[in-house]
């Protein structure tokens, strides 16, 4: 599903206790299921329905998405840095495809 690598934006570095903004963007059509093709046949729904962010094996954020989220879903959230670690971001779509991206946070 995702030809393009998801994009993650973290601060260049962070200290323990800092509150950081985590920005994520994944390429996905987010087909609503309400549209028709040029022959009038309905186009099946295909959206990312779940986004999960874990940091050092602990879930820090989760989102359930509906067809009302724009194509190429952008999601950002905040997190207090508990220590050094790596984010695992996972996007799951209607066809069951799971896209996973790992990003290490530079804790100084």
């Amino acid at each position: 599903m995702t030809a393009t690598k998801p994009r993650i934006k973290l601060p260049e570095s962070a200290k323990i206790g800092d509150v950081i903004e985590v920005k994520t963007l994944v390429t996905h059509v987010m087909e609503t299921g309400h549209r028709k093709d040029k022959d009038g046949n309905p186009i099946a729904r295909d959206i990312i329905n779940t986004f999960i962010a874990t940091f050092g094996d602990k879930e820090v954020f989760r989102a359930e998405l509906g067809p009302g989220i724009s194509a190429n879903p952008y999601i950002s959230f905040q997190m207090r840095v508990p220590g050094p670690g790596t984010f695992e971001f996972a996007w799951i779509d209607d066809s069951g495809t799971k896209t996973v991206e790992l990003t290490t946070l530079n804790v100084i």
Binding site: F61, A63, I69, P73, I75, F77, Q78, M79, R80
Partner: peptide, 11 residues
């Protein structure tokens, strides 16, 4: 864990 309850997206 989020410390600040702020989220962004596009709808």
């Amino acid at each position: 864990a989020n410390a600040v309850a702020r989220v962004q997206s596009r709808m």
